Computed example of a mutant assay.
Amino acid sequence: MAGLQIVAFVSGLVGLGATIGATVSNEWRATSRSSSVITATWVLQGLWNNCAGNAIGALHCRPHHTIFGVDDYIQACRGLMIAAVCFGFFGCVFALVGMKCTKIGGSDQSKAKIACFAGVCFVLGGLCSISACSLYAHRITSEFFNPFIIDQKYELGAALFIGWAGGVLCILGGSVLCFSIAESFSKSHNQVNGVYKGAASHSHITSITRAQAANPRPSAANSNASRAQYFDKNAYV
């Protein structure tokens, strides 16, 4: 089980790295070459910056002018990605404490609870990342296939695929981490039942011993004397 928890932790850690990379990336969407007037230049847009590049490799970026002038879907994606990074960070911290191969966290049962909480954090972070990338991709595709939009159209950027991959890895790591502690809970439950059964059997044996001590069996001399009296009474019959 310790090896399974290590695999889950590595998966969540890689997913967190991919989520951070997608959050800070400037390639959430890129200009479509099919609709671009000047094919030697292209435009990249992210959650924080707008960038323009050309064929010779020059790339110029500038941040969004004001936070209140950004579209609502970009604001939502920002919040979801920040939440995904926070959940992934706390998931990594609690996973380190809750794994069986570490020496911190207390007893096995308390470590199992901490590992379960870490798995939940990973799953929530993955869901936030996937939701943000899906929302942004839906906006791009709806504008691309809208015939009434004649402005510059965009295609899906590499950051969306990185965010999707990071979200899937976080969900897988969190799920494996949650399922890996089921064995710990079952073992602790069996141990508790064994303790109760042992205590019950011990109390039963103790009660039998006390009853025997309170009512001892008659000695051999008393039994022989009773038999002699019986035969004496019936000797002349």
Rank of each mutant, 00 (worst) to 15 (best):
residue 135 L to E: 08
residue 151 D to E: 14
residue 150 I to H: 15
residue 117 F to R: 07
residue 109 Q to D: 13
residue 101 C to P: 06
residue 127 L to I: 10
residue 100 K to T: 05
residue 152 Q to S: 12
residue 101 C to T: 10
residue 129 S to Q: 10
residue 114 I to W: 00
residue 121 C to P: 10
residue 109 Q to R: 12
residue 140 I to G: 00
residue 120 V to I: 13
residue 119 G to Y: 02
residue 138 H to T: 13
residue 154 Y to D: 04
residue 111 K to R: 10
residue 125 G to I: 02
residue 111 K to D: 02
residue 122 F to Q: 01
residue 117 F to A: 15
residue 121 C to T: 02
residue 98 G to T: 00
residue 151 D to Q: 12
residue 129 S to R: 07
residue 99 M to N: 02
residue 107 S to A: 07
residue 154 Y to G: 02
residue 149 I to D: 14
residue 102 T to Q: 09
residue 138 H to S: 15
residue 146 N to K: 08
residue 134 S to K: 09
residue 146 N to D: 14
residue 118 A to Q: 01
residue 129 S to I: 04
residue 94 F to T: 04
residue 132 A to I: 03
residue 142 S to M: 11
residue 133 C to W: 01
residue 106 G to F: 01
residue 122 F to V: 12
residue 118 A to C: 04
residue 125 G to Y: 00
residue 150 I to S: 14
residue 138 H to A: 15
residue 140 I to R: 01
residue 149 I to R: 15
residue 118 A to P: 00
residue 115 A to G: 04
residue 114 I to P: 00
residue 115 A to I: 00
residue 118 A to M: 08
residue 93 V to I: 13
residue 132 A to S: 09
residue 136 Y to A: 06
residue 150 I to Y: 15
residue 116 C to G: 09
residue 156 L to G: 07
residue 98 G to E: 02
residue 124 L to T: 06
residue 147 P to M: 07
residue 136 Y to D: 07
residue 101 C to Q: 11
residue 118 A to T: 00
residue 152 Q to I: 11
residue 142 S to C: 10
residue 156 L to F: 12
residue 118 A to R: 00
residue 127 L to C: 12
residue 108 D to Q: 10
residue 104 I to M: 08
residue 137 A to S: 11
residue 119 G to I: 01
residue 137 A to C: 13
residue 137 A to V: 09
residue 153 K to Y: 06
